[in-house]
């Protein structure tokens, strides 16, 4: 069996254990209502985390996504307020814009051989600044189409609601899984994360792959911004501060190696749900401070880093034994 799948199994086991633990205290927590809300509340995070997973798999990082989400919300709100456009063409414009923004960062990372950290840090400030340029105060979205989007859901047995944005998140995860595991582009991403020099010798188009990875992350950030604006019904330049870090945490808790080359998109979904479940548990409990979420996430992150280091050590030793 491959040791690289172990972090994924560990993630799933931890999620199931957390469910079990929550269930013993609050049997109501295992219900379609809670589950539906879990998907809805974390839809924007899940979508942006899928983009982040591909970036991290390629050996990079994208710090700009939180700001891009905020920019997206403000852009949509201002466009709907100041022009008579329908939200759909605005969405298309936005997605083209954020994809191009991501592609531009990918181009700089590749051509200038700059660390992704610095380039996307600059992108983070740029996008946040652009959001402030559009509007400093929060802008409400009152377009009737938004009410349709917000009200769209499928009723699940047990009166749970699978909302449109929740479904969109699941669809994005499936898209991400196909992209990462079933296409040449996906294999190229893993190859880059495994070793750039070697990947190039094997015939990976490094430049193209890097640009596409960041363009995809930008696209996901834009989509996440749309979802966030539907979720909150407004656009606010100060929204989603630190979301890029939460997304990276979800990716790592999902079992993806932060140095790239190993991990699964499905794991990221489980990572997002685990973080959401902790939050739900605290809401059910009511007496615990919400800061406990951060503490538990911190501990989980630490545990996963140790797990991955341990696995690396183990596989090296096993190799030394067989050699």
């Amino acid at each position: 069996m491959n040791t690289r799948a172990l972090p994924l199994y560990a993630t799933i086991v931890i999620f199931l254990l957390a469910c079990l633990l929550a269930w013993t205290q609050f049997p109501n927590i295992i219900s379609t209502r809670v589950f539906g809300n879990l998907l809805t509340d974390n839809a924007y995070l899940g979508i942006v985390a899928v983009g982040m997973t591909l970036v991290v798999l390629s050996g990079g990082i994208d710090l700009s996504v939180g700001s891009v989400i905020a920019f997206s919300g403000v852009f949509i709100a201002v466009m709907l307020r100041d022009t008579g456009l329908h939200p759909l063409p605005v969405f298309v414009m936005l997605l083209v814009l954020t994809s191009a923004f991501g592609a531009g960062m990918g181009f700089m990372i590749d051509r200038l051989a700059m660390p992704a950290f610095i380039v996307t840090l600059a992108g983070m400030f740029l996008a946040r600044g652009a959001a402030y340029m559009l509007s400093i105060p929060s802008v409400p979205i009152t377009h009737p189409f938004y009410q349709t989007l917000q009200g769209a859901y499928i009723l699940l047995p047990g009166r749970g609601r699978l909302t449109l944005i929740g479904m969109l998140m699941v669809a994005v995860v499936i898209l991400g899984m196909i992209l990462a595991h079933r296409t040449r582009f996906g294999t190229s991403v893993y190859a880059l994360g495994g070793g750039e020099q070697t990947a190039r010798l094997m015939g990976v188009r490094q430049g193209r792959t890097t640009v596409l990875v960041y363009a995809f992350s930008g696209l996901m950030a834009g989509l996440s911004g749309i979802v966030f604006s539907v979720y909150t019904g407004s656009g606010y330049a100060l929204a989603a501060v630190g979301t890029e870090l939460t997304a990276i945490a979800a990716v790592v808790i999902g079992g993806t190696l932060l140095t790239g080359g190993a991990g699964y998109v499905f794991g990221t979904l489980v990572g997002v749900l685990t973080m959401g479940l902790i939050q739900t548990y605290l809401v059910f409990d009511g007496s615990l401070s919400s800061w406990w979420t951060k503490i538990v996430i911190g501990l989980l992150l630490l545990a996963f880093i140790l797990l991955q280091k341990g696995l690396l050590h183990l596989s090296r030793r096993r190799l030394a034994d067989t050699a």
């Binding site: 294999t187 893993y190 190859a191 070697t198 015939g203 080359g261």
Partner: peptide, 18 residues
């Protein structure tokens, strides 16, 4: 060895010609 240790044997052998 100029192959990728994090990909499977099949992926390494067939990369680009899957």
């Amino acid at each position: 060895v100029n192959l990728l240790p994090n990909l499977t044997v099949a992926q390494n052998l067939m990369f680009g010609r899957e």
